[in-house]
Design a protein around this nucleic acid. Structure first.
Lengths: 330, 330
DNA sequence: TTGAAAGCGCTAACAT
DNA sequence: ATGTTAGCGCTTTCAA
């Protein structure tokens, strides 16, 4: 049984109000009394019950970050930055891992939204805001990141997936490639759709067919994709993928089958954070500003919390295409 | 202002007790009454205040995982598994990132220990349990993972760092290498000390000097190490490192300077999770059971929570040395 | 089958 | 300069 404020008060021979004020520095207490209270706290090993305090004050200094995949360096990089930004203002970060499961996300939102956290940063597994709307109390500050949702009235920070990949595909085409394969995953997330559109639009604008060049892999970072075998087809001379996890898998797959990426076959990979990432073959990369996105999201949330009447913002950060010839500049 | 249980009660024309019992299924309520209450809940969009409930019941269904580096796949892999284990029992996971800062860790423990979480899993930045002892209420279930602390009376789950690396160094020596460099970091964590000891002991047992073969790099995953230049020395024919981040950095460094690992120079890298990790050069690896450690920690915590009188456990999971010739077996 | 009410630990308004 | 006390939203005991 942990000691309560009452016991400290009794031990120090003062009222609980005085103890509370000593702890919170919230009104003047005579030096002598303060000393007595502090001694009692020390002796009894008292530590204020944070839940009771939150309950009473309605403030929690807690932000929740909802991530679809904590094992994905893109999100862990974001998390690090969000944490840095908000902890400077005295907030702590609660991280929820939904594993791309909308049900898990809904569950987390329901539990946390009512009185547990002061705000959310969400990389959502939902495709639309509609089912989320009911779970969030009005005025609870929420920032959506990375993924665009239908009908979403909240602040949203995205990465421009389209143009970086467009540049990448253009680059390959200008190098003379006509059979550029594209790996994608089966879900309908905005990021997945946009990147695929970038690939298909760009190919189409150069009158290159893509019918038998698109392959579906498995969406979660920790699952190896199956069915990459067609990538070994003779006619395919270059490959693009929609994220870093697939980069890794595809590159590994190719090497295992004796085709050296960057040499026997061209490729565009993803670099989703500043984390050291060992990509040996000299291939082109799309670099996503995970850290900048995290920082921006943290700041925007603080902004929104201190000023709820701000107009909704929708920010798009650009990603960078780095041709293999420029890799030394990273 | 979110709706409270009182408003639901009034709206439904029943007492708050009945509403509470409907919500928690905690005593019989006439079907008709139950219906009324559920309708009111629906109409008012009521959601119970989790903080108030925690406050009242003293239970929170929250576990905190204290990690020194969330961007390190070793920890994010553990986190995934812990989360899977405890969420099956209805617990949620709060993740705190200390960035190897003992002050941050102490702060998190203090805040969370009193009434916020039901238990801790800690990969500590502290070297000794002594400073931690004061912050943790007696009987609060705590599991330490990955790192061994002095005077630690709590359940501890570790990985056998020593023997896997010993095997690795032996392997290199048997291949004829005599000048095997070792990269390490400057902190005094048990893992760092053990691995370095494995290196030095093994070298010594083969009468190989190590005086000018040990190099110090930077400990956090997201920081590139400086001063790796001496690794290019002619006499050094093999290199070992103490973790996956340094593997990546060292390998990248070597390639950038024209020395192909596994060909021009031998190396032992680390594989710290089941995540796809693209290590192209054919080098030997030490594989750490991050996932198994996470699962074991989750189970041990649940065990400890349901039975506080269990004798303290100290479990050591073994790591595996995978010679480069066996890489296909991964 | 349901209601009334105590009380969890704390903060803060009010009182002195 | 400090004490008294209401009350945050909820669960649960006791009473009916």
């Amino acid at each position: 049984m942990p000691t309560s404020i009452r016991e400290v008060a009794r031990h120090a021979g003062v009222s609980i109000a005085t103890v509370s004020h000593v702890i919170n520095n919230t009104r003047y207490v005579k030096e002598e009394t303060r000393k007595k209270v502090q001694d009692s706290i020390e002796q009894l090993g008292y530590c204020p019950n944070a839940i009771a305090r939150s309950f009473k004050t309605g403030r929690h200094n807690l932000i929740a970050f909802i991530t679809p995949d904590i094992a994905n360096p893109f999100y862990s990089a974001m998390i690090e930055e969000v944490e840095a930004v908000i902890s400077a203002k005295g907030y702590r970060l609660l991280i929820c891992n939904t594993k791309e499961d909308a049900v898990k996300e809904a569950d987390a939102l329901r539990v946390l939204a009512n009185g547990v956290v002061d705000g959310f940063i969400i990389a959502s597994a939902f495709l639309s805001y509609d089912p989320i709307a009911k779970m969030l109390p009005a005025n609870l500050p929420v920032i959506f990141v990375d993924r665009s949702l239908e009908n979403n009235p909240c602040d949203t920070l995205l990465i421009d997936n389209y143009h970086a990949l467009q540049k990448g595909i253009e680059y390959l085409i200008h190098q003379g490639h006509t059979h550029i394969a594209y790996i994608t995953v089966k879900n309908q997330l905005s990021t997945v759709i946009e990147r695929r559109a970038a690939y298909e639009d760009t190919m189409a604008s150069h009158h290159l067919p893509t019918d038998d060049l698109v392959f579906i892999a498995n969406p979660l970072s920790s699952l190896f994709s199956d069915n990459l075998a067609p990538l070994l087809r003779e006619d395919i001379t270059a490959i693009a993928v929609p994220n870093a996890c697939l980069s890794t898998e595809v590159l590994t797959f190719l090497e295992e089958h004796g085709r050296i990426p960057g040499k026997d076959i061209e490729a565009i990979g993803y670099k989703e954070s500043n984390q050291p990432q060992y990509i040996n073959p000299s291939i082109s990369l799309i670099s996503q500003p995970a850290e900048a996105l995290g920082r921006a999201a943290g700041h925007q949330l603080l902004e929104r919390m201190s000023n709820p009447d701000l107009p909704t913002c929708r920010t798009i950060l650009s990603a960078t295409f780095i041709p293999k010839t420029d890799r030394h500049k990273i």
